[in-house]
Design a protein around this nucleic acid. Structure first.
Lengths: 128, 128
DNA sequence: ATCTTTCTACTACAACTGTAGTACGACAAT
DNA sequence: ATTGTCGTACTACAGTTGTAGTAGAAAGAT
């Protein structure tokens, strides 16, 4: 997927994208149904959100009859890269070690799990 | 400092806060001077930004004559906690191990540095 | 053929953000 | 006193976000 620079998305926009990431190309109706379920959004709201994402270039739309189908143009890794880098730059002086230290100090992760992650990666297991 | 829930700040707002975090209570003029320097902002812009942060409750203002002095009401750790938690929730399903794995995979941190961070924390050294 | 449902397109609107200009009062310089 | 400077308050304005309503076309139901 694209390496486009700025892909900072809001929590809600990420929720929309996640539907596309999980299901691949999806109709407005199906995305809307899921978001209605998850957080009670009206389908016009979801339609608006999708058009905006399209205008912004992070998804593409395809028309079939009078229905629109959306597909992600950036994948989750792209967004993670971009947003983690932003956070790192803004709050950790770009120092990832500081971020890891923060995670440990705030008990988001146990010290021992660092080794676990390392072993997991060493074994070539890639993410979920 | 406060444990207030939502302290998600924009990069620019963080830059403002950083001045206050580093210098403690600071006059509008001094914050403005620094931001003018760092990123060419006009002092009225900085003044506006500071009033907004005050309205939002993340800084407090004190008046001395016709000058305003600002002081942070949340510290950097508070903001880090809040924003890292948001990111974790939105993009890593709340799983910090995934985030650490991401950092390693994207070469933001070397696998060996994980152990380094762990040792550093074990020794009771706290962050910069 | 007509009614009803379904979709998209467009419009709306408030809150927040980035950016700054203008107005006005206070203070300093002469 | 007069004038220029500094600082705050208020206003402005475009772009983004969250949320949704309305209009109008198309498709399905009877």
């Amino acid at each position: 997927m694209g390496k486009r620079a700025d892909i900072s998305l809001s929590e809600l926009q990420i929720a929309l994208m996640r539907v596309l990431w999980v299901r691949g190309e999806t109709s407005t109706a199906d995305v809307a149904a899921q978001l209605a379920d998850e957080r009670g959004l009206k389908h016009t709201t979801v339609a608006t959100l999708l058009t905006r994402l399209e205008k912004r270039g992070v998804v593409a739309q395809r028309r079939d009859g009078r229905q629109l189908y959306y597909r992600a143009l950036v994948d989750e890794a792209d967004v993670r890269r971009s947003m983690v880098a932003d956070l790192l730059g803004a709050l950790f002086a770009g120092d990832a070690q500081e971020l890891v230290a923060h995670l440990v100090q705030e008990s988001e992760i146990a010290p021992g799990d660092l080794a676990k992650v390392r072993r997991r990666l060493a074994r070539g297991e890639h993410d979920a």
